[in-house]
Design a protein around this nucleic acid. Structure first.
Length: 591
RNA sequence: GCGGGUGUAGCUCAAUGGUAGAGCGACAGCCUUCCAAGCUGACGACGAGGGUUCGAUUCCCUUCACCCGCUCCA
């Protein structure tokens, strides 16, 4: 809230930076489209040699800053597949019960459970944006449903809710409907249209089956048997084969179905039948890494001697079926997170929120060329989850606008409470020293409150690439104007730290360069030897992949044992003895 | 999911109802003493499937993927 988005000079990077960056990522081996030779897979990306280094460096810096340099934070590395009840407790499983519906006329999409439900017997006017749209929609309805609705300016009249499961068209003056359609009792929220698609289940989580036997096999066997039986015997097959509550419910449903013969209800039956079998072996890929930290809260505390205030951190992949994927790797179904849950005494959450806000923003800006492109945005009350106390997003100024990078949420004791309820295990801290503020009794048993800084690693990678992308106009040796592309990545993030280049490929220079690179590699510096093409081309190539330093072996090296050290951003060179190369590069990387 | 656009070599782009070229890059070699010099060579593509046609990269359909805008977003 204290930070305001500043005006940004448009000249700092080209307007089509995303296009250029995506091309560079592919060409130089940062990011490839997944399974590209098979035509690609929606929203899946692979990190190439340079991308993998960049991501490791980035996540390593996070881990170092959040875990290894802090006494009060420990890390875990949890399984991606967790007990299904974890997601019932967290609320993510509820995502499965939010059916989405599309209006066939307006193409509006909405959640069925939030749609208006007009009373039986009431008219169902369709309110269009304007008269032109009304005319267009009326024609569409006439064509697809065979009825001419009456147009009154922008409103289409004539439809009536006949019963809870049927609506119809009643022409002006008529007493009975001339045509009817099945109905689920609700209309589109914006325009009031009852012409809707079936309800589609939106799967937030990726579901898979744990176990070697395919549950669908069993489903197929039973459905085949049921299908082969005459209707009166179907319900009995269920109760005889599955003497459970589900079977009884299922058989009742089947009996009712065979009585009404409504295809939609059959669909419901088959769906719940499949659900019954698959749910036994269904597990989910985690949609966030956070829950493992709550679930293992007690184990971590018991095993590591941690006590509030303390944090548990984790990095790793998460999976969500996004409705829309967009902007390259910005929103994808498989992504990587860097999250921490910080457990603190109830009542201290505001101070800790302030502490972590500062810590996190300073981390982001530390690696940025344009720190002002990272800002906080406080969530409005109605924007936050109902249990949340306070929430800030770290937003980045992407080429397409401000977008989320990290959410820092004050989650109260909601998560621990939920897992207590669902697991039956007490998740609390017993403070022997303090008295319960309410009762005054010792010890104080409490469920810690949680501050959660949850950052997107994939998004971090993208924003630092955008931040680093620079173009400069320069004049070549032959006098032509040319664009120099430089990735001004922070040296700690840069995939390759140092290139070692013989000025020319002769006179013993390659040999000298090989000696230097061996020393750098031995010292743990990710260095690269390159003797191809001209020296200028090699500099340009390393500028483009963000290599911060180039060591060049030249004629003087052979007589004086000195080399030049070139800085990527300034292109300036200094001469130094070979003996000092490793120490100098290491010192610069540590700075 | 909707609407619009795009898909030709690693990248950026051409041409064409008779199976395709360039620039840059990358690779091999030659040359080259500090910021994308030059020469030689080899490699390399019509996203996928189907249809129309004597013949399709070109026209049509389907599909996949990407981009823009909506919509959606525990």
């Amino acid at each position: 809230m204290s930070d305001v988005a500043p005006a940004v000079s448009l000249a700092k990077r080209p307007a089509d930076v995303m296009k250029k960056l995506v091309a560079l990522c592919k060409q130089r081996g940062f990011v490839f489209q997944s399974s590209e030779i098979y035509g690609g897979l929606k929203s899946a990306y692979d990190y190439g040699p340079l991308g993998a280094e960049l991501k490791r460096n980035l996540m390593g810096e996070w881990w170092k800053d959040m875990v290894t340099t802090r006494e009060n934070v420990v890390g875990i590395d949890a399984s991606i597949i967790m007990h299904p009840n974890v997601w019932r407790a967290s609320g993510h499983a509820a995502g499965f019960s939010d059916p989405l519906v599309d209006c066939k006329i307006s193409k509006e999409r909405f959640r069925a459970d939030k749609a208006p439900r007009p009373a039986v017997g009431s008219p169902l006017p369709i309110t269009c944006a304007d008269k032109g749209v009304a005319k267009e929609w009326a024609e569409r309805i006439a064509k697809e449903y065979g009825v001419e609705l009456e147009r009154d300016a922008n409103v289409l009249n004539g439809l009536v809710a006949i019963s809870a499961s049927e609506f119809g068209f009643v022409p002006k003056g008529a007493s009975a409907p001339t045509k009817t359609w099945p109905w689920r009792g609700y209309v589109g929220p914006t325009f009031g249209s009852p012409f809707l698609t079936d309800e589609k289940q939106f799967n937030l989580m990726f579901r898979t089956a744990l176990g070697a036997v395919d549950p669908m096999q069993e489903v197929a066997v039973h459905l085949a048997k049921i299908g082969a039986l005459p209707p009166p015997e179907r319900a009995d097959y269920l109760t005889q084969t599955f003497p459970t509550e589900t079977a009884v419910a299922g058989s009742l449903m089947l009996k009712a179905l065979d009585a009404v013969r409504d295809p939609n209800r059959y669909q419901d039956f088959i769906r719940s039948f499949i659900e019954h079998f698959t749910s036994l072996s269904s597990v989910y890929l985690r949609p966030e890494t956070a829950q493992a930290m709550f679930v293992q809260f007690k184990n971590v505390m018991d095993s590591s001697g941690m006590k509030p205030p303390f944090g548990i951190a984790q990095m790793g992949k998460s999976f969500r079926n996004e409705v829309t994927v967009e902007h390259f790797i910005f929103r994808s179904c498989e992504f990587e997170q860097m999250e921490m849950e910080f457990f603190c005494e109830p009542g201290t959450q505001k101070e800790w929120m302030a502490f972590w806000k500062e810590a996190r923003m300073s981390w982001w800006r530390r690696f940025a060329n344009y720190p002002e492109d990272f800002v906080f945005r406080q969530h409005a009350k109605d924007e936050m989850a109902f249990y949340a106390d306070d929430c800030y997003d770290v937003e980045y100024k992407y080429p397409w606008g401000w977008g989320e990078l990290e959410g820092i949420a004050s989650r109260t004791d909601y998560d621990l409470t939920q897992h207590e309820k669902h697991s039956g295990v007490t998740l609390q801290y017993v403070d022997q020293e303090k008295a319960d503020p309410k009762t005054g009794a010792k010890p104080w048993k409490y469920k810690p409150y949680v501050i959660e800084p949850a950052a997107g690693a994939t998004r971090a990678l993208l924003c630092f690439l955008i931040d680093a992308y620079h173009e400069e106009e320069r004049t070549t040796a032959t006098g032509e104007k040319e664009i120099r592309t430089v990735l001004k990545l922070h040296p700690k993030l840069a995939p390759i730290k140092c290139a070692v280049l013989p000025l020319v490929k002769k006179d013993g220079m390659p040999e000298k360069a090989r000696e230097i690179i061996a020393a750098l590699l031995k010292a743990g510096v990710n260095a690269k030897y390159d003797e191809k093409a001209s020296i200028g081309k090699r500099y340009a190539k390393h500028d483009e992949i963000g290599t911060p330093y180039c060591i060049t072996v030249d004629g003087d090296t052979l007589t004086a044992d000195t080399v030049t050290l070139r800085d990527r951003d300034t292109t300036l060179q200094v001469r130094l003895p070979i003996a000092e190369v490793v120490a100098t590069i290491k010192a610069r990387l540590e700075a």
